[in-house]
């Protein structure tokens, strides 16, 4: 790792001020992606500003028909929360399957979505559930937030403060993990929401998370695994690498969609 200067932010305002005063700073949440990237010298921020101990950014609360999760809430906290399990069980199950137990104790929802790894799990949940991402500057819909592989609408000095999820009638996530890395080769989140059925896919798209409108219509008409069994996504826009071809991933999307619906 190249030399860097560490700062622990005491509040959101403190984090903003420290970022503004630094030459080329990065915000640090759980560090489960940023630190490995810095160790490999693929990132070399002059300063890291640790948001992990900012009180307002942590915690899970129930609103009026919504679930609000603070940005530095860990995957472990989401996975083990009785509130999340009751309101959006698919989200708790998704968090329980990210990385491994040690990673889940450190990794955070805000860090994961800000990084927007194309194989990360959370983007599928946020898009399928129609979540709102609140930052220190504005509110964004999940579909506006995720812009492509490792790309989000966030500005350099913008901080995710929390994610607000409308409570869904049904929700579930199914992923096919890479046998070695355990990252999703295809992960499908299905949700029955007040805005209708929603299906979002991670891990497979060459441009990050995407929705499958044909499956959504089919589920609106008939919420069952059979409804999506005959629907496949075009392989043209899917990732193709040593782990699996685009055609293979296209097939995985259908299989994971069926499994997710079956799990609701």
């Amino acid at each position: 790792m190249y030399d860097t200067t560490y700062h622990r932010a005491g509040s959101l305002q403190d984090a903003e001020a420290k970022f503004a005063a630094a030459e080329d700073a990065k915000f640090l949440a759980g560090g489960q992606t940023l630190l490995p990237t810095m160790k490999q010298r693929l990132a070399a921020p002059s300063d890291v500003i640790d948001l992990g101990k900012v009180p307002d950014l942590s915690g899970i609360s129930e609103g009026d028909g919504s679930l609000v999760i603070g940005a530095v809430t860990t995957h472990y906290e989401v996975a083990s929360s009785d509130v999340v399990k009751r309101l959006i069980p698919g989200l708790a199950a998704l968090a329980a399957g990210i990385g491994d137990p040690a990673v889940r104790y450190r990794g955070t929802i805000g860090g994961s979505i800000s990084n927007n790894d194309p194989a990360a799990d959370y983007p599928a949940a946020l898009v399928a559930l129609g979540a709102t991402i609140n930052t220190n500057k504005r509110s964004l819909s999940a579909e506006d937030f995720f812009e492509g592989m490792f790309m989000t609408a966030l500005e350099e000095d913008e901080i995710v403060t929390n994610v607000s999820f409308p409570v869904a009638e049904k929700s579930a996530y199914a992923k096919y993990p890479n046998p070695a890395s355990r990252y999703a080769m295809a992960g499908v989140f299905v949700a029955k929401t007040s805005a209708g059925s929603r299906v979002a896919v991670t891990g497979a798209g060459s441009d990050g998370v995407f929705r499958v409108s044909e499956m959504e219509s089919a589920l609106d008409a008939n919420w069952s695994p059979e409804a999506v069994a005959g629907i496949s996504v075009p392989a043209d826009d899917l990732l193709s690498d040593i782990h699996g071809s685009a055609d293979y991933r296209a097939n995985l999307v259908t299989v994971m969609a069926k499994r997710a619906v079956a799990a609701t």
Partner: peptide, 25 residues
């Protein structure tokens, strides 16, 4: 690279990978 778990220690009672955390954290 945070895969193998040989470096697991407990920080405030939670088992974490100490190769993927700054001492300052």
């Amino acid at each position: 690279t945070s895969q193998c778990g040989s470096c697991v220690v407990h920080v405030d009672g939670k088992a974490v990978k100490s190769c993927t955390m700054l001492a300052a954290q």
